[in-house]
Amino acid sequence: MDTYYHPPDLAKFGDIGKDAPELWKKFQEWYGAVFAEGALTEREKALIALAVSHAVQCPYCIDAYTSGSLEKGATPAQMTEAVHVAAAIRGGAALVHGVQMRNHLDKISM
């Protein structure tokens, strides 16, 4: 069955550098630096990435950072809480726009 997302395509990520190798190289260097241990640990960064993967709903990223979080020593409980954080922000983001709805409702109502 045809689908836009194929799990094996994750391994082809590097193909995006074929016609723009310098940009791909810069991205890789920057990406590597972002995920290196710094003020945050590698594990904390992997959990943030896992949460963001859910917020942006990237199936490649979800697979990659499920494995990645485990390989940085995160537990399934920590990973599940990270996903809840993403979900809470997404849910909260929808709900807080209700203020805009209230504002407009007030404006156009008698």
């Binding site: 640990t41 590698e42 494995s67 485990l70 390989e71 020593g73």
Partner: peptide
């Protein structure tokens, strides 16, 4: 050892 198909995390951190 990992409970699944992934590599172990850094030994010192674990």
């Amino acid at each position: 050892n990992p409970v699944g198909a992934f590599l172990p995390a850094a030994q010192a951190a674990l």
